[in-house]
Design a protein around this nucleic acid. Sequence first.
DNA 1: CCGAGATATCTCGGTTCCGATGTATGAACG
DNA 2: CGTTCATACATCGGAACCGAGATATCTCGG
Lengths: 178, 178
Amino acid sequence: MLELAILGFLKDGPSHGYDLRTKVAALTGHVRPVADGTLYPAIKRMAGAGWLTRKDEPGAAAAPRRVLYLTEAGERELERRLRHPDPLDLSDENRWFTLLAFLRHLDDPAAQAEVLRRRLAFLEQPASFFYDGDRPMRAEEFGDPFRQGLLSIARATSRAELAWLRATIDSLDRGDAP
Amino acid sequence: MLELAILGFLKDGPSHGYDLRTKVAALTGHVRPVADGTLYPAIKRMAGAGWLTRKDEPGAAAAPRRVLYLTEAGERELERRLRHPDPLDLSDENRWFTLLAFLRHLDDPAAQAEVLRRRLAFLEQPASFFYDGDRPMRAEEFGDPFRQGLLSIARATSRAELAWLRATIDSLDRGDAP
DNA sequence: CCGAGATATCTCGGTTCCGATGTATGAACG
DNA sequence: CGTTCATACATCGGAACCGAGATATCTCGG
């Protein structure tokens, strides 16, 4: 998740750790700041993999910044991750929404539509929490308000995303202007 | 996340690993099966902590089942985790919805309302993806349909949950019948 | 001029999880 | 009677992450 976000942000231009921290936190649905202990090791890891290079930029700010530039290998890695998403990217909400935020970087409407179709296929398999056997559950069947709420919130989310997915896939297939 | 789910399910009655696997997978929004390599070590860990005991039940099924029983220490642990949720439980969607599914086990409406209030406080802090400074973003401002979709889906989810949270907190505070 | 706070990076220990792999049994099917 | 499938449990290596702490610089108010 983190690595995809870093690749995606750097694709828009060079940045540095402290700046990425803010941007990444803002991405994840609602502000969940990424710990420094997660971010900086990830940067180091990715530099080691050759996806980005670091240059010291002294005097730019209080502490010395190490500005990060996406390499060509990094661009290829981003493209690869967007085009062939890991199964977890399709099932984990955090990962999926991160991927969605950067799907614009995939310069191929057919490939974009294919990614959306995969998420659609995942969402369309019946979630057991929603069903009792084959029969859809009704919220009132739960004796407690918490599972009722969970069900209704999950349904609202699902409906919104399914409608958007179907409309957007159609639009991409038809080659509409965005 | 997993440990809370296991505690929560066992509170409803004894079960065994393979059964929990199905139940846990069904919980997490949409079916994301928990890997065996995650589940069984978790059970072992929790048995070591004294939260559950294992009894072999030969002949019940093909392979020998090890039926899991929640201990009193396990019940206390469940209660503790529900009453004083870890900050991550309030910010991570997967963790939060898991907690919500078992909040019924907390036998104290005031404490339940307090938990919901904490989640509400978290959701009410403005998410930077939704705002440009103090001004709410409009979906159309994004040039690509993907960030537009992300924003509209996130808003739909947010609205549904906020409405439910406020209504349920009121209801718990007034002491309404469920 | 001094301290507080924001900026900025890095490391370490510990936890949880995934993915792959291994093992074994009973049931169903031909 | 053999193959295949579902059930059931377990271990191992590695990836990713959190939380806490360490360090250093610049700015700004008092």
